[in-house]
Write a protein that binds this DNA or RNA. Structure first.
Length: 491
RNA sequence: GGCGGCGUAGCCAAGUGGCUAAGGCAGAGGUCUGCAAAACCUUCAUUCAUCGGUUCAAAUCCGAUCGCCGCCUCCA
């Protein structure tokens, strides 16, 4: 059974879906006014793995991830660029989709846009006014926070604390500084939609309520987002949603930790961010994905060159093993024997451990999606499999075949949920790493040098062999003489 | 000021009451190798920021102290 840390209760809880066998999940997407940065990537990757994991466990998942495509920042950006808000939004939605595709993030089942749900938002706002939870001032509509008894239950703060600490200039039209805008009257030239209160545009929080209601219902299982959304965004969502429906809005609130740089939050306002595409120009997407999954999703993760290099080293290690498996299995046929007939006693524990990987992986993931631990389990098995490969000479071929193909299957199986470890080793070592621009020779030239070097080695001309090794080394190519021949990898 | 979180080896990082504190990187020694690399083996925290307390038993619970971070304003 899956246990999830719920921000609302500050505890890990057993996941009990509203509808047995189904998960209704909403993740706050991005405001599309600029390229997304690594912090956005973290949430996307983490919640992608979580929704994949639910599917793996047999749940019917409806995953909604929205785009905020109307907002002050989009309007400002449009002004700066002399274009329209709609064009700005379209451009960065496109860019986001490209970034996500490169990171291997699956498409959500529904990817709604705020501007496509104005009607739904207006309906919710109307209902809130009728129920006395909202009021109209000069074409603006504000939510009356004091009218909702549970306000503060998600972010664990009470109204007095917040008023004491209020340090923003207060919109004079609000009855109370904590009240927030549901609908904003548009200024001339701004995007505007007709409403009972005059032309305007929605406030930020109302979109998630309206889109969540429409695509998932008035109560759904999971609502996810970055920790910085807890207050005020998610707190406000709860207030307006529950005030409107009279029902519990969301059962489990999940919040991912930040990506830090030098122990500081990566953010637009600090200017210390790297866009996803900048990072992907330097590091293969799989490195980034492994890096993001190597820390539990609720903890902060520090972005640094060293940490990305660690992730790369991990992938080198994994794919070296995968290459070893592949080389062994190449050209051999699956034996028509039962595993228990041919696997010798000494290898039984390894075989059991391989078959057990799926189970222990799921135990780790069941515990609040502990990808870091799950990856540790994978590397633990990598070492065992490498040991087996190192000693495979003396083994029965049919038994070795069964063990190694079972290992390949097991790694593949868990890799699919994480979205890593799935490539062909050859592709990893060559295409992926070549893509980082570290090798300054074309592949054909490299192969030619290797051929020349092996001729030199055949006549025991070690000086020439070493000279060629050095030439390739300077071009960023490392050579390894294996029993099956010489292979090369980017340094 | 209010609220929340974190502090585990040189580095990254699991572990939240009880077997030997996962896993990776880096380091040291070894096997292998024409030389290398990879891989494998051995080694690498008597100790979990500090100090007290609770308990038969704590990195894990409680209190205090120090340090760091986040939210309270748009923020994944």
């Amino acid at each position: 059974m899956i246990k999830i840390y719920n921000t609302l209760t500050s505890k890990k809880e057993e996941f009990a879906p509203i509808t047995p066998g189904a998960v209704k999940m909403y993740a706050c997407g991005v405001t599309v006014y600029d390229y997304s940065h690594l912090g956005h990537a973290r949430g996307a990757v983490v919640f992608d793995v979580i929704q994949r994991y639910f599917r793996r466990k047999g749940f019917r998942v409806t995953y909604v991830r929205n785009f905020t495509d109307v907002d002050d920042k989009i309007i400002n950006r449009a002004k700066e660029e002399g274009t329209t808000a709609a064009e700005v939004a379209q451009k960065y939605i496109q860019a986001y989709q490209e970034d996500m595709a490169r990171l291997g993030v699956s498409r959500a089942d529904v990817e709604p846009r705020a501007t496509g749900h104005i009607k739904e938002m207006v309906e919710v706002i109307k209902g809130l006014i009728e129920k006395g939870h909202a009021y109209v001032v000069d074409g603006n509509v504000f939510f009356r926070v004091a009218s909702f008894a549970g306000y503060g239950k998600l972010s664990k703060r009470n109204l007095e604390d917040m008023q004491a600490g209020a340090r923003v200039e207060v919109d004079e039209r609000k009855n109370d500084p904590l009240d927030f805008a549901l609908w904003k009257a548009s200024k001339p030239g701004e995007p505007a939609w007709d409403s009972p209160w005059g032309p305007g545009r929605p406030g930020w929080h109302i979109e998630c309520t309206a889109m969540g209601f429409k695509h998932l219902g008035e109560t759904f299982d999971i609502h996810a987002g970055g920790k910085d959304l807890i207050f005020p965004h998610h707190e406000n969502e709860i207030a307006q949603s529950e005030a409107f429906s009279g029902k519990r809005f969301v059962n489990y609130w999940l919040h991912n930790g930040f990506v830090n740089i030098n122990q500081e939050k990566m953010s637009k306002s600090l200017g210390n961010f790297f866009t996803i595409r900048e990072i992907l120009d330097q590091y293969d997407a799989e490195i980034v994905r492994l890096f993001l999954l190597s820390t539990h999703y609720r903890s902060p993760i520090d972005f640094s060159d060293g940490n990305l290099k660690d992730a790369r080293a991990g992938l080198d290690r994994f794919y070296t093993m995968k290459e070893g498996i592949k080389n062994y299995l190449a050209g051999k046929m699956p034996p028509a024997v039962r595993p228990e007939q041919v696997i010798e006693g000494a290898d039984r524990p390894l075989y059991e451990k391989i078959l057990n990987l799926r189970t222990v992986f799921e135990e780790a993931m069941d515990d609040d999606f502990n990808t870091a631990f799950a990856i540790g389990l994978i590397y633990d098995l990598v070492r065992d499999v490498n040991k087996f490969i190192a000693e495979v000479e003396g083994k029965r071929e049919d038994a070795a075949y069964i063990i190694l193909s079972a290992a390949a299957d097991a790694f593949d199986n868990v890799g699919k949920t994480l979205g890593i470890f799935l490539r062909d080793p050859e592709e990893w070592f060559k295409a992926a790493r070549l893509g980082e621009g570290k090798v300054s020779l074309p592949m054909e030239k490299i192969e030619e040098y290797i051929h020349l070097r092996n001729e030199a080695r055949a006549r025991k001309d070690w000086a020439e062999a070493d000279r060629i090794r050095l030439v390739l080394d300077e071009a960023g190519v490392a050579l390894y003489d294996r029993s099956g021949g010489t292979v090369w990898k980017p340094k």
